[in-house]
Amino acid sequence: MSQPDGFKVAGKENLVCRLKKSLYGLKQSPRQWYKRFDSFMLGQKYTRSQFDHCVYFKQLADKSFIYLLLYVDDMLVACKSKVEINRLKVQLNKEFEMKDLGEARKILGMEIQRDRVKGTIHLTQQQYLKKVLERFGVGKGNSKPVSVPLAPHFKLSASLSPSSEEERKYMTNVPYASLVGSLMYAMVCTRPDLAQAVSMVSRYMHDPGKVHWQAAKWILRYILGTVNLGLKFEKRISVDHLVAGFVDSDYAGDLDKRRSTTGYVFTMAGGPVSWRCTLQSTIALSTTEAEYMAVTEAIKEAIWLQGLVTDLGVEQEHVTVYCDSQSAIHLAKNQVHHSRTKHIDVRFHFIREVIEDGEVLLEKIGTVDNPADMLTKVVTGVKFKHCLDLINMRQV
Protein backbone atom coordinates (compact mmCIF):
# COMPACT_ATOMS: atom_id res chain seq x y z
CA MET A 1 0.00 0.00 0.00
CA SER A 2 1.25 3.52 -0.74
CA GLN A 3 2.33 5.42 2.38
CA PRO A 4 -0.68 7.46 3.58
CA ASP A 5 -0.49 11.25 3.80
CA GLY A 6 1.03 12.42 7.06
CA PHE A 7 2.84 9.11 7.63
CA LYS A 8 5.46 9.23 4.89
CA VAL A 9 8.99 8.40 6.07
CA ALA A 10 11.49 11.04 5.05
CA GLY A 11 13.94 9.79 2.46
CA LYS A 12 11.88 6.65 1.86
CA GLU A 13 8.92 8.16 -0.04
CA ASN A 14 9.38 5.65 -2.87
CA LEU A 15 8.75 2.68 -0.56
CA VAL A 16 5.36 1.09 0.15
CA CYS A 17 3.76 -0.48 3.22
CA ARG A 18 3.42 -4.23 3.46
CA LEU A 19 0.03 -5.18 4.89
CA LYS A 20 -0.30 -7.90 7.49
CA LYS A 21 -4.08 -7.94 7.06
CA SER A 22 -6.57 -6.36 4.71
CA LEU A 23 -8.03 -2.87 5.15
CA TYR A 24 -11.34 -1.35 4.08
CA GLY A 25 -11.21 0.38 0.72
CA LEU A 26 -8.55 -1.78 -0.89
CA LYS A 27 -9.37 -3.75 -4.03
CA GLN A 28 -8.63 -7.08 -2.34
CA SER A 29 -10.64 -6.32 0.83
CA PRO A 30 -13.95 -7.92 -0.31
CA ARG A 31 -12.06 -10.98 -1.52
CA GLN A 32 -10.16 -11.34 1.76
CA TRP A 33 -13.39 -10.96 3.76
CA TYR A 34 -15.12 -13.62 1.67
CA LYS A 35 -12.20 -16.05 2.05
CA ARG A 36 -12.29 -15.59 5.82
CA PHE A 37 -16.07 -16.10 6.01
CA ASP A 38 -15.93 -19.06 3.60
CA SER A 39 -13.30 -20.89 5.65
CA PHE A 40 -15.37 -20.32 8.80
CA MET A 41 -18.58 -21.72 7.26
CA LEU A 42 -16.80 -24.76 5.82
CA GLY A 43 -15.27 -25.29 9.25
CA GLN A 44 -18.80 -25.43 10.70
CA LYS A 45 -19.58 -28.34 8.33
CA TYR A 46 -21.66 -26.23 5.95
CA THR A 47 -21.55 -26.89 2.20
CA ARG A 48 -20.97 -24.11 -0.30
CA SER A 49 -23.31 -24.27 -3.30
CA GLN A 50 -21.50 -25.05 -6.55
CA PHE A 51 -23.92 -22.81 -8.44
CA ASP A 52 -23.83 -19.75 -6.16
CA HIS A 53 -20.79 -19.38 -3.94
CA CYS A 54 -22.63 -17.05 -1.56
CA VAL A 55 -25.16 -19.74 -0.59
CA TYR A 56 -24.29 -22.15 2.24
CA PHE A 57 -26.41 -25.02 3.47
CA LYS A 58 -26.35 -28.00 5.82
CA GLN A 59 -28.66 -31.00 6.07
CA LEU A 60 -29.88 -31.59 9.61
CA ALA A 61 -30.64 -34.85 11.41
CA ASP A 62 -34.35 -34.66 10.52
CA LYS A 63 -33.44 -34.34 6.78
CA SER A 64 -34.46 -30.66 6.72
CA PHE A 65 -31.98 -27.95 5.70
CA ILE A 66 -30.58 -24.73 7.12
CA TYR A 67 -29.50 -22.10 4.60
CA LEU A 68 -27.31 -19.02 4.90
CA LEU A 69 -27.23 -16.44 2.09
CA LEU A 70 -24.42 -13.90 2.06
CA TYR A 71 -24.31 -10.53 0.28
CA VAL A 72 -21.05 -8.76 1.22
CA ASP A 73 -21.69 -8.53 5.00
CA ASP A 74 -25.49 -8.89 5.00
CA MET A 75 -26.79 -12.37 5.81
CA LEU A 76 -30.13 -14.12 5.63
CA VAL A 77 -30.63 -17.39 7.50
CA ALA A 78 -33.55 -19.74 6.78
CA CYS A 79 -34.55 -22.96 8.53
CA LYS A 80 -37.65 -24.68 9.89
CA SER A 81 -36.00 -24.96 13.31
CA LYS A 82 -35.45 -21.79 15.36
CA VAL A 83 -33.06 -23.77 17.56
CA GLU A 84 -30.74 -24.37 14.61
CA ILE A 85 -30.97 -20.70 13.55
CA ASN A 86 -30.01 -19.58 17.07
CA ARG A 87 -27.16 -22.07 17.16
CA LEU A 88 -25.74 -20.66 13.93
CA LYS A 89 -26.10 -17.10 15.25
CA VAL A 90 -24.12 -18.01 18.37
CA GLN A 91 -21.36 -19.54 16.23
CA LEU A 92 -21.22 -16.44 14.01
CA ASN A 93 -21.21 -14.11 17.00
CA LYS A 94 -18.17 -15.85 18.49
CA GLU A 95 -16.20 -15.39 15.27
CA PHE A 96 -17.38 -11.98 13.98
CA GLU A 97 -18.82 -8.75 15.29
CA MET A 98 -22.44 -8.93 14.21
CA LYS A 99 -25.84 -7.40 14.83
CA ASP A 100 -28.90 -9.63 15.05
CA LEU A 101 -31.90 -7.90 13.45
CA GLY A 102 -34.34 -10.68 14.35
CA GLU A 103 -36.97 -11.99 11.97
CA ALA A 104 -36.25 -11.00 8.38
CA ARG A 105 -38.38 -8.02 7.40
CA LYS A 106 -36.04 -6.14 5.11
CA ILE A 107 -32.83 -6.90 3.23
CA LEU A 108 -30.99 -4.88 0.56
CA GLY A 109 -33.97 -2.54 0.23
CA MET A 110 -36.43 -5.42 -0.29
CA GLU A 111 -39.29 -5.69 2.19
CA ILE A 112 -40.39 -9.20 3.21
CA GLN A 113 -44.02 -9.72 4.27
CA ARG A 114 -45.15 -13.13 5.48
CA ASP A 115 -48.59 -14.54 6.08
CA ARG A 116 -48.11 -17.84 7.90
CA VAL A 117 -51.85 -18.62 7.88
CA LYS A 118 -52.16 -18.35 4.10
CA GLY A 119 -48.63 -19.62 3.52
CA THR A 120 -47.54 -16.66 1.38
CA ILE A 121 -44.50 -14.42 1.14
CA HIS A 122 -44.47 -11.01 -0.58
CA LEU A 123 -41.32 -9.22 -1.70
CA THR A 124 -41.69 -5.50 -2.46
CA GLN A 125 -39.59 -2.32 -2.58
CA GLN A 126 -42.25 0.20 -1.56
CA GLN A 127 -40.03 2.40 0.61
CA TYR A 128 -37.20 2.41 -1.90
CA LEU A 129 -39.49 3.32 -4.81
CA LYS A 130 -41.21 6.06 -2.80
CA LYS A 131 -37.79 7.61 -2.17
CA VAL A 132 -36.97 7.38 -5.89
CA LEU A 133 -40.25 9.10 -6.82
CA GLU A 134 -39.64 11.81 -4.23
CA ARG A 135 -36.06 12.31 -5.40
CA PHE A 136 -37.10 12.90 -9.01
CA GLY A 137 -40.12 15.02 -8.15
CA VAL A 138 -42.89 12.63 -9.20
CA GLY A 139 -45.98 12.56 -6.99
CA LYS A 140 -49.74 12.17 -7.28
CA GLY A 141 -50.13 15.92 -6.97
CA ASN A 142 -48.08 16.70 -10.07
CA SER A 143 -48.05 13.48 -12.14
CA LYS A 144 -50.71 11.17 -13.51
CA PRO A 145 -50.11 7.39 -13.15
CA VAL A 146 -50.04 5.28 -16.35
CA SER A 147 -50.89 1.60 -16.86
CA VAL A 148 -47.79 0.37 -18.73
CA PRO A 149 -44.04 1.02 -18.16
CA LEU A 150 -43.50 2.24 -21.72
CA ALA A 151 -46.05 3.57 -24.25
CA PRO A 152 -46.13 2.55 -27.94
CA HIS A 153 -45.41 6.11 -29.10
CA PHE A 154 -41.85 5.93 -27.71
CA LYS A 155 -39.80 4.78 -30.72
CA LEU A 156 -36.40 5.00 -29.04
CA SER A 157 -33.24 5.05 -31.14
CA ALA A 158 -29.79 6.66 -31.23
CA SER A 159 -31.11 9.21 -33.76
CA LEU A 160 -32.96 10.89 -30.87
CA SER A 161 -29.69 11.79 -29.13
CA PRO A 162 -28.93 15.55 -28.92
CA SER A 163 -28.32 17.10 -32.35
CA SER A 164 -27.87 20.73 -31.29
CA GLU A 165 -25.61 22.41 -28.76
CA GLU A 166 -28.66 23.79 -26.96
CA GLU A 167 -30.19 20.34 -26.47
CA ARG A 168 -26.84 18.87 -25.41
CA LYS A 169 -26.47 21.60 -22.81
CA TYR A 170 -30.00 20.90 -21.55
CA MET A 171 -29.28 17.17 -21.19
CA THR A 172 -26.08 17.78 -19.19
CA ASN A 173 -28.28 19.11 -16.36
CA VAL A 174 -30.64 16.11 -16.48
CA PRO A 175 -29.92 13.24 -13.99
CA TYR A 176 -30.60 10.58 -16.67
CA ALA A 177 -27.96 8.04 -15.60
CA SER A 178 -28.95 8.42 -11.96
CA LEU A 179 -32.63 7.77 -12.73
CA VAL A 180 -31.94 4.76 -14.96
CA GLY A 181 -29.61 3.30 -12.31
CA SER A 182 -32.31 3.69 -9.64
CA LEU A 183 -34.86 1.99 -11.90
CA MET A 184 -32.41 -0.78 -12.72
CA TYR A 185 -31.96 -1.70 -9.05
CA ALA A 186 -35.73 -2.08 -8.60
CA MET A 187 -35.98 -4.10 -11.82
CA VAL A 188 -33.19 -6.50 -10.74
CA CYS A 189 -34.63 -7.13 -7.26
CA THR A 190 -38.45 -7.31 -7.36
CA ARG A 191 -39.82 -5.72 -10.53
CA PRO A 192 -39.63 -7.93 -13.65
CA ASP A 193 -42.46 -5.79 -15.07
CA LEU A 194 -39.90 -2.98 -15.56
CA ALA A 195 -37.36 -5.15 -17.40
CA GLN A 196 -38.30 -4.29 -20.99
CA ALA A 197 -38.70 -0.57 -20.35
CA VAL A 198 -35.47 -0.26 -18.36
CA SER A 199 -33.63 -2.27 -21.03
CA MET A 200 -34.79 0.26 -23.62
CA VAL A 201 -33.81 3.44 -21.76
CA SER A 202 -30.48 2.03 -20.53
CA ARG A 203 -29.20 1.65 -24.12
CA TYR A 204 -28.76 5.41 -24.41
CA MET A 205 -26.95 6.16 -21.13
CA HIS A 206 -23.89 7.49 -23.00
CA ASP A 207 -25.80 10.12 -25.01
CA PRO A 208 -29.48 10.51 -23.99
CA GLY A 209 -31.84 12.93 -25.71
CA LYS A 210 -35.03 14.65 -24.59
CA VAL A 211 -37.26 11.80 -25.81
CA HIS A 212 -35.15 9.25 -23.89
CA TRP A 213 -35.60 11.41 -20.77
CA GLN A 214 -39.37 11.55 -21.34
CA ALA A 215 -39.45 7.74 -21.64
CA ALA A 216 -37.54 7.38 -18.36
CA LYS A 217 -39.99 9.75 -16.62
CA TRP A 218 -42.89 7.73 -18.09
CA ILE A 219 -41.54 4.69 -16.20
CA LEU A 220 -41.70 6.76 -13.00
CA ARG A 221 -45.34 7.55 -13.72
CA TYR A 222 -46.02 3.82 -14.07
CA ILE A 223 -44.27 3.16 -10.74
CA LEU A 224 -46.38 5.91 -9.12
CA GLY A 225 -49.49 3.77 -9.67
CA THR A 226 -47.81 0.43 -8.83
CA VAL A 227 -45.45 1.34 -5.98
CA ASN A 228 -46.74 -1.55 -3.85
CA LEU A 229 -46.59 -4.16 -6.64
CA GLY A 230 -44.35 -7.09 -5.74
CA LEU A 231 -43.56 -10.78 -6.02
CA LYS A 232 -45.87 -13.27 -4.38
CA PHE A 233 -44.79 -16.80 -3.45
CA GLU A 234 -47.29 -19.38 -2.24
CA LYS A 235 -47.02 -22.63 -0.31
CA ARG A 236 -48.70 -25.02 -2.70
CA ILE A 237 -48.61 -28.71 -3.53
CA SER A 238 -45.15 -29.92 -4.49
CA VAL A 239 -45.71 -29.98 -8.25
CA ASP A 240 -46.14 -26.19 -8.25
CA HIS A 241 -42.85 -25.71 -6.46
CA LEU A 242 -40.98 -26.93 -9.51
CA VAL A 243 -39.04 -24.39 -11.57
CA ALA A 244 -40.70 -23.53 -14.90
CA GLY A 245 -39.57 -21.05 -17.53
CA PHE A 246 -41.20 -18.94 -20.24
CA VAL A 247 -39.26 -17.49 -23.15
CA ASP A 248 -40.07 -15.16 -26.04
CA SER A 249 -38.29 -12.89 -28.51
CA ASP A 250 -39.11 -9.82 -30.54
CA TYR A 251 -37.70 -10.00 -34.06
CA ALA A 252 -35.51 -7.03 -35.14
CA GLY A 253 -37.11 -4.69 -32.60
CA ASP A 254 -33.93 -2.60 -32.15
CA LEU A 255 -34.18 0.41 -34.48
CA ASP A 256 -30.41 1.06 -34.47
CA LYS A 257 -28.84 -2.26 -35.47
CA ARG A 258 -31.97 -4.37 -36.07
CA ARG A 259 -31.01 -6.87 -33.41
CA SER A 260 -33.73 -8.94 -31.76
CA THR A 261 -34.68 -8.99 -28.08
CA THR A 262 -34.54 -12.01 -25.78
CA GLY A 263 -36.93 -12.18 -22.84
CA TYR A 264 -37.43 -14.96 -20.31
CA VAL A 265 -38.87 -15.42 -16.83
CA PHE A 266 -38.61 -18.44 -14.50
CA THR A 267 -41.07 -19.08 -11.70
CA MET A 268 -40.98 -21.17 -8.54
CA ALA A 269 -43.63 -21.51 -5.82
CA GLY A 270 -45.90 -19.47 -8.06
CA GLY A 271 -43.68 -16.37 -8.25
CA PRO A 272 -40.85 -15.19 -10.51
CA VAL A 273 -37.29 -15.97 -9.34
CA SER A 274 -35.26 -15.10 -12.45
CA TRP A 275 -35.94 -12.84 -15.44
CA ARG A 276 -34.09 -11.09 -18.23
CA CYS A 277 -34.63 -8.75 -21.15
CA THR A 278 -31.60 -8.15 -23.37
CA LEU A 279 -30.57 -7.52 -26.96
CA GLN A 280 -29.21 -10.56 -28.77
CA SER A 281 -25.50 -10.49 -29.54
CA THR A 282 -25.92 -11.10 -33.27
CA ILE A 283 -28.53 -10.15 -35.87
CA ALA A 284 -31.11 -12.89 -36.49
CA LEU A 285 -32.18 -13.42 -40.10
CA SER A 286 -35.66 -14.74 -39.30
CA THR A 287 -38.25 -14.91 -36.52
CA THR A 288 -37.43 -18.60 -36.04
CA GLU A 289 -33.75 -17.84 -35.61
CA ALA A 290 -34.48 -15.05 -33.09
CA GLU A 291 -36.73 -17.40 -31.08
CA TYR A 292 -34.13 -20.19 -31.27
CA MET A 293 -31.41 -17.90 -29.91
CA ALA A 294 -33.75 -16.76 -27.13
CA VAL A 295 -34.53 -20.38 -26.21
CA THR A 296 -30.78 -21.05 -25.95
CA GLU A 297 -30.34 -18.29 -23.36
CA ALA A 298 -33.37 -19.51 -21.40
CA ILE A 299 -32.11 -23.10 -21.36
CA LYS A 300 -28.71 -21.99 -20.02
CA GLU A 301 -30.56 -20.28 -17.17
CA ALA A 302 -32.75 -23.38 -16.67
CA ILE A 303 -29.66 -25.61 -16.27
CA TRP A 304 -28.21 -23.22 -13.68
CA LEU A 305 -31.48 -22.94 -11.73
CA GLN A 306 -31.96 -26.71 -11.73
CA GLY A 307 -28.47 -27.14 -10.31
CA LEU A 308 -29.09 -24.50 -7.63
CA VAL A 309 -32.41 -25.93 -6.39
CA THR A 310 -30.92 -29.45 -6.42
CA ASP A 311 -28.11 -28.13 -4.20
CA LEU A 312 -30.76 -26.72 -1.87
CA GLY A 313 -32.46 -30.09 -1.51
CA VAL A 314 -35.33 -29.66 -3.99
CA GLU A 315 -35.44 -32.73 -6.21
CA GLN A 316 -36.47 -31.95 -9.76
CA GLU A 317 -36.00 -34.37 -12.64
CA HIS A 318 -36.08 -31.66 -15.30
CA VAL A 319 -37.05 -28.04 -15.90
CA THR A 320 -39.79 -27.25 -18.41
CA VAL A 321 -39.27 -24.21 -20.64
CA TYR A 322 -42.30 -22.93 -22.54
CA CYS A 323 -41.90 -21.25 -25.91
CA ASP A 324 -44.63 -19.88 -28.21
CA SER A 325 -42.72 -20.62 -31.45
CA GLN A 326 -43.43 -24.05 -32.89
CA SER A 327 -40.71 -23.64 -35.55
CA ALA A 328 -38.03 -22.85 -32.92
CA ILE A 329 -39.08 -25.94 -30.94
CA HIS A 330 -38.78 -28.13 -34.06
CA LEU A 331 -35.38 -26.61 -34.81
CA ALA A 332 -34.19 -27.36 -31.26
CA LYS A 333 -35.39 -30.97 -31.37
CA ASN A 334 -34.25 -31.75 -34.92
CA GLN A 335 -30.61 -32.80 -35.34
CA VAL A 336 -30.49 -32.13 -39.08
CA HIS A 337 -28.46 -29.08 -40.17
CA HIS A 338 -29.98 -27.77 -43.38
CA SER A 339 -29.38 -24.66 -45.44
CA ARG A 340 -31.57 -22.46 -43.27
CA THR A 341 -29.63 -23.12 -40.04
CA LYS A 342 -26.01 -23.85 -40.94
CA HIS A 343 -25.06 -20.18 -40.52
CA ILE A 344 -26.29 -20.06 -36.90
CA ASP A 345 -23.38 -19.90 -34.47
CA VAL A 346 -22.48 -23.32 -33.05
CA ARG A 347 -22.90 -22.09 -29.45
CA PHE A 348 -26.65 -21.91 -29.98
CA HIS A 349 -26.88 -25.56 -31.04
CA PHE A 350 -25.81 -27.03 -27.70
CA ILE A 351 -29.48 -26.99 -26.63
CA ARG A 352 -30.15 -29.94 -28.94
CA GLU A 353 -27.94 -32.15 -26.74
CA VAL A 354 -29.55 -30.81 -23.57
CA ILE A 355 -33.05 -31.54 -24.87
CA GLU A 356 -32.08 -34.97 -26.17
CA ASP A 357 -30.65 -35.89 -22.75
CA GLY A 358 -33.94 -34.85 -21.10
CA GLU A 359 -32.32 -32.28 -18.77
CA VAL A 360 -34.73 -29.63 -20.02
CA LEU A 361 -38.16 -30.08 -21.61
CA LEU A 362 -39.09 -27.59 -24.33
CA GLU A 363 -42.86 -27.27 -24.68
CA LYS A 364 -45.26 -25.20 -26.79
CA ILE A 365 -47.39 -22.54 -25.14
CA GLY A 366 -49.85 -20.12 -26.71
CA THR A 367 -48.69 -16.52 -27.09
CA VAL A 368 -51.70 -15.42 -25.01
CA ASP A 369 -50.46 -17.45 -22.02
CA ASN A 370 -46.77 -16.55 -22.34
CA PRO A 371 -45.80 -13.97 -19.66
CA ALA A 372 -42.39 -13.43 -21.33
CA ASP A 373 -44.25 -11.49 -24.03
CA MET A 374 -44.11 -8.35 -21.84
CA LEU A 375 -40.31 -8.67 -21.61
CA THR A 376 -39.69 -8.32 -25.34
CA LYS A 377 -41.97 -5.55 -26.58
CA VAL A 378 -44.41 -2.83 -25.60
CA VAL A 379 -47.84 -4.42 -25.04
CA THR A 380 -51.29 -3.04 -24.30
CA GLY A 381 -52.45 -2.38 -20.74
CA VAL A 382 -54.82 -5.38 -20.78
CA LYS A 383 -52.13 -7.75 -22.09
CA PHE A 384 -49.60 -6.38 -19.61
CA LYS A 385 -51.97 -6.94 -16.66
CA HIS A 386 -52.59 -10.50 -17.90
CA CYS A 387 -48.82 -11.18 -18.04
CA LEU A 388 -48.42 -9.93 -14.45
CA ASP A 389 -51.23 -12.23 -13.32
CA LEU A 390 -49.55 -15.20 -15.01
CA ILE A 391 -46.38 -14.78 -12.90
CA ASN A 392 -48.28 -13.94 -9.71
CA MET A 393 -47.25 -10.31 -9.31
CA ARG A 394 -49.70 -8.70 -6.92
CA GLN A 395 -50.39 -5.39 -5.20
CA VAL A 396 -49.64 -5.72 -1.48
Rank of each mutant, 00 (worst) to 15 (best):
F37Y: 13
F40L: 13
F40S: 08
F40Y: 14
F40I: 11
M41Q: 02
M41C: 12
L42E: 10
G43P: 01
Q44H: 14
Q44S: 10
S49C: 12
S49P: 04
Q50K: 11
Q50M: 08
Q50L: 13
D52R: 05
H53P: 03
H53V: 10
C54K: 04
C54V: 07
V55W: 00
Y56A: 01
F57T: 12
Q59M: 11
L60T: 09
A61L: 14
A61N: 15
A61K: 12
A61I: 13
D62F: 06
K63C: 13
K63R: 15
F65Q: 02
F65W: 09
I66G: 01
I66M: 04
I66L: 11
I66N: 05
I66Q: 01
Y67G: 05
Y67I: 13
L68Q: 00
L68Y: 05
L68A: 09
L69S: 06
V72F: 07
V72P: 00
D73A: 08
M75W: 01
L76W: 03
V77S: 00
C79P: 02
C79R: 03
K80P: 10
S81R: 09
K82I: 13
V83M: 15
I85P: 03
I85R: 08
I85L: 08
I85F: 07
I85A: 08
I85G: 03
N86W: 10
N86I: 10
N86R: 12
N86K: 14
R87Y: 07
L88E: 00
L88Q: 01
K89I: 09
V90K: 14
Q91E: 13
Q91S: 15
N93C: 13
K94P: 11
K94R: 15
E97H: 08
M98D: 12
K99S: 12
K99N: 15
K99V: 13
K99D: 08
D100E: 07
D100M: 05
D100W: 03
L101G: 02
E103D: 11
E103K: 07
A104C: 12
R105D: 08
R105E: 12
I107T: 07
G109M: 08
M110L: 05
E111P: 01
E111A: 05
E111V: 01
I112K: 00
D115I: 07
D115T: 06
K118Y: 10
G119K: 12
T120M: 01
L123W: 06
L123N: 03
T124S: 12
T124R: 04
Q125H: 06
Q126E: 12
Q126F: 07
Q127K: 15
L129K: 01
L129G: 00
L129A: 04
K130E: 08
K130S: 11
K130I: 08
K131G: 03
K131H: 14
V132S: 01
R135K: 15
R135V: 10
R135H: 15
F136T: 12
G137Y: 09
V138P: 00
V138Q: 03
V138C: 07
G139R: 01
G139W: 06
G139P: 04
K140C: 04
K140M: 07
N142M: 01
N142L: 04
S143F: 00
K144V: 05
K144E: 09
S147D: 08
V148K: 00
V148F: 00
L150H: 00
P152G: 03
H153Y: 15
H153R: 10
K155P: 06
K155N: 14
K155M: 14
S157I: 04
A158W: 10
A158L: 09
L160T: 01
S161M: 09
P162E: 05
P162I: 06
